[in-house]
């Protein structure tokens, strides 16, 4: 009499586990494919498909970069084996209300191709203007670099630097600027290694 509830619950558990295993099996490959396509779509915002010829999504390494939340993921675009661009997925913990994830494209010489926001929880209407579809603030990084313009002060204008600050979103702006700067500092010191290390 008292054993029946246990058996029922166990049976339901077994059936549920079997169903979940089957669904997982049926969707696993597709989910992985979709995830790769998503990554590739994001990466292709910064490097056009025709500029490289390697398997971009697989040619990646992880890096521990000072000032950023580890690990950062670095994708290497190459054409006939020669470096074309480094695409870095980085996350800073210094956002106003949570981490901000960025994608930064660097040319082999360290010049920034562009920066895109991958995810954030900044205040709607204020900090969310770091998104490209809401304002062109993020475009100010295009073409800059560790010494471009020469002697550039990598701080927000509000703190005496050369980069524009989004009004009412100083913390957000500064977080993005410092995150990009941390990546540039790391790249300046690890330039050769970044492309030479074997993919994971």
């Amino acid at each position: 009499m008292a054993i029946k509830p246990v058996v029922t619950l166990a049976l339901i558990g077994i059936v549920a586990a079997a169903v979940l295993a089957a669904v997982n099996l049926a969707t696993r490959d597709r989910i992985e494919l979709e995830q790769r396509r998503q990554v590739l779509q994001t990466l292709n915002q910064l490097v056009p498909t025709e500029s490289y010829d390697n398997e971009l999504v697989s040619d990646r390494i992880s890096a521990w970069i000072a000032g950023l939340r580890p690990p950062s993921t670095l994708y290497r675009a190459r054409s006939r084996g020669e470096p074309v661009a480094l695409l870095a997925e980085i996350t800073t913990a210094n956002g106003y209300s949570g981490p901000i994830s960025l994608l930064v494209g660097l040319r082999p010489d360290g010049e920034i191709i562009g920066v895109r926001v991958l995810g954030h929880r900044e205040t709607p209407g204020l900090g969310d203007r770091i998104e490209r579809r809401r304002s062109d603030w993020i475009e100010q990084f295009n073409g800059t670099g560790p010494d471009r313009p020469p002697g550039a002060d990598w701080r927000s204008s509000r703190r005496g630097g050369e980069f524009d600050t989004l009004s009412s979103a100083t913390i957000t702006s500064e977080a993005v600027i410092q995150a990009v700067r941390s990546l540039l500092d790391w790249y300046a010191a690890n330039r050769d290694q970044a492309f030479a290390t074997a993919a994971e």
């Binding site: 619950l9 339901i12 549920a16 997982n24 969707t27 597709r30 989910i31 979709e34 995830q35 998503q38």
Partner: peptide
């Protein structure tokens, strides 16, 4: 109650996986 919770949680997991596979964005 545990049986209902088990059933509901399994169904939600199925929805989650199916959405990831076919409605990724």
């Amino acid at each position: 109650i545990p049986a209902f919770v088990l059933i509901i949680a399994s169904l939600v997991t199925v929805v989650d996986l199916v959405m990831q596979a076919w409605f990724f964005t």
